[in-house]
């Protein structure tokens, strides 16, 4: 037995949160494809996580429509995570969703030693509640400011200005999914490339060039941002 000074060691937690629009406009193919894409991404997230044993990837999902609700409020290690299919109905209370995320990013329950969390917002519409207030609550939290914030717009009706405000970095644009194939690619990119980058961050100086993300995110490949077959663009 080691007589190493100190007690039990701990890897660094990496909180990954899906923030999903479940409003009525998502009903049908959009929500079905969203469920399919995220469910299919879980095995690859497990692989990415397994490549870095020094980070513990913890997953949560929050749905918003008329109000917002955690699918699992307690973070679940990726090894044990299973996706529970979402239904669509109601309006688009994104402000409420961001407010609930803000509560979970407070220190505590978060620790200062965590890796920057990853927040992935997926929406097809425009907020129906006070989005600015929810965003302010999120950005008032130190981990809210430092989170890697990615947004996926489903279809051309999504409010890209809102999604851009959520991202908070002009160099990073919302990903726009105009068909099911693009949504799958974008979810896969976020859940593998972004997750990998976030789990192995290097130090960032406080006055690093702005705007920037707290974690250097690789450039989004063209095939993730552009539809290969525009004729398939149905959203």
């Amino acid at each position: 037995m080691s007589n190493r000074p100190g007690g039990e060691l701990a890897t660094r937690p990496l909180h990954f949160i899906w923030i999903c629009d479940c409003s009525g406009s998502m009903f049908g193919e959009k929500i079905n494809q969203l469920n399919h894409a995220i469910r299919d991404s879980i095995p690859e997230m497990k692989t990415v996580s397994g490549e870095n044993p020094n980070a513990t990837v913890l997953i949560r999902a929050l749905k918003f429509s008329s109000g917002a609700q955690w699918m699992n409020k307690d973070p679940v290690p990726i090894e044990n995570y299973t996706w529970v299919d979402l239904d669509a109905d109601g309006v688009t209370d994104l402000g409420k969703a961001l407010s609930m995320v803000a509560d979970e990013l407070k220190i505590p329950p978060m620790t200062e030693r965590a890796l920057p969390p990853v927040l992935v917002l997926i929406s097809d519409g425009q907020p129906t509640d006070n989005f600015d207030s929810g965003l302010k609550e999120l950005m008032d939290q130190r981990w809210g400011q430092r989170a890697v914030r990615i947004a996926i717009a489903i279809g051309n009706d999504a409010d890209n200005d809102v999604l851009q405000k959520f991202i908070g970095n002009t160099e990073m644009k919302p990903l726009i999914a105009t068909n099911a194939g693009m949504l799958v690619k974008q979810i896969k990119w976020v859940s593998t490339v972004v997750l990998k980058a976030a789990s192995q961050p290097m130090s960032q100086t406080r006055d690093a060039p702005k705007p920037t993300t707290n974690v250097p995110i690789p450039t989004v490949p063209d095939d993730v941002t552009t539809s290969a077959t525009p004729a398939d663009d149905v959203w």
Binding site: I107, E112, R113, A114, L115, P116, R142, W143, R146, P201, M202, S203, Q204, T205, R206, D207, N214, V215
Partner: peptide
């Protein structure tokens, strides 16, 4: 208290 996660001040910083 302003430094959390991977943030740091640095000898290469302006100030």
């Amino acid at each position: 208290p302003n430094l959390i996660g991977n943030e740091t001040t640095s000898l290469c910083s302006v100030e």
